[in-house]
Design a protein around this nucleic acid. Structure first.
Lengths: 162, 162
DNA sequence: GGCATGGCTGGTCATTTTGACTAAAATCCT
DNA sequence: AGGATTTTAGTCAAAATGACCAGCCATGCC
């Protein structure tokens, strides 16, 4: 179910783009707006929901609306042997919004959010204390220049066979 | 409309958490599941939609489902005077999914996605050629350890006054 | 060529949901 | 305490939903 990710086709993309503003528009509106039969849209929506191609809905929530006005990237080096413990520990910190493993010197790049600089300090301390983490370096995000988006990619793909 | 971000309250958070799996559940189900009146949920949903607290729906789409299996962070240094031109140029590259300005040596941290390493090279070239960008350094994301989430934060807040 | 498959269409049906609107009760704020 | 705001619980007509269906058209396979 997770081995090969579901690939969106042109119709999926059109539906998703049409849902961009309001994910709750009635299926019939979608259908006529896209020139599809209602049943088709209904089927696609159902399929999409189970496809694993979408993050959970709460991934749409901006940290700032939860009183977390301060964001930062924490890069961490770690004791390679205890990677999994470190990840588990990180997962248990609510302020850890995201974590990736990049190639290069830093082993983990962690995105955190906090209420204020003081709180940010607390969170990065908490990260530093995770088992297996040997060194961290925090850099605050000064500005959210382009917020996460896929719209441009979606549109680019549109008009292509696949 | 953008100066002060809307702050979610406890009810908003409960609604959003309940919507996490399926953003299209009927309002009545939500209402009875949460022990609220239908009208309340209806009002909150409408308010939420206009609050600016949520990213567009397409932000839920995983790049992998668009045939973009390769992700990377590109850090860029730039000629400070032409910041805005650089940003505009970046915005016009569909593969640029996100961009933040962190404190520290790198001026911009850019998240990109590509179909394969070759394509990634092409994209980073395209970034390097943006006006005002003087130097870039690309590091591929080997693993998506914790995908973007706010659920933990939402739950943490629950049970608090605000 | 002939056939099965899968997806889309356009139609039906009974049931449920929606949006808009009440008035009254509860809650919040100062 | 008093006013403002929110929530409740109720109504209504109109619309959407989910679950069907048979027909049609591509596609791929033997």
């Amino acid at each position: 179910m997770n081995s090969e990710t579901y690939q969106l086709d042109e119709t999926d993309r059109r539906i998703l783009l049409a849902l961009d503003n309001d994910p709750r528009v009635p299926i019939m509106m979608l259908a006529q707006q896209l020139g599809l039969a209602r049943g088709t849209v209904q089927t696609r929506l159902e399929r999409l929901a189970h496809s694993g191609a979408l993050r959970p809905n709460t991934a749409r929530i901006l940290p700032s609306s939860m009183g977390r006005g301060v964001s930062a990237f924490v890069s961490a080096e770690l004791n390679q042997s205890s990677l999994n413990e470190a990840i588990d520990a990180l997962r248990r910190i609510p302020e850890v919004l995201e974590c990736v493993a990049p190639a290069g010197e830093t082993d983990l790049l962690i995105r955190v959010s906090a209420t204020d600089p003081d709180d940010l300090y607390r969170v990065s301390e908490e990260i530093r204390l995770c088992p297996g983490i040997t060194r961290t370096s925090t850099s605050m995000i000064l500005r959210d220049v382009i917020p996460y988006r896929t719209t441009a990619l979606l549109s680019k793909l549109s008009g292509t066979k696949n």
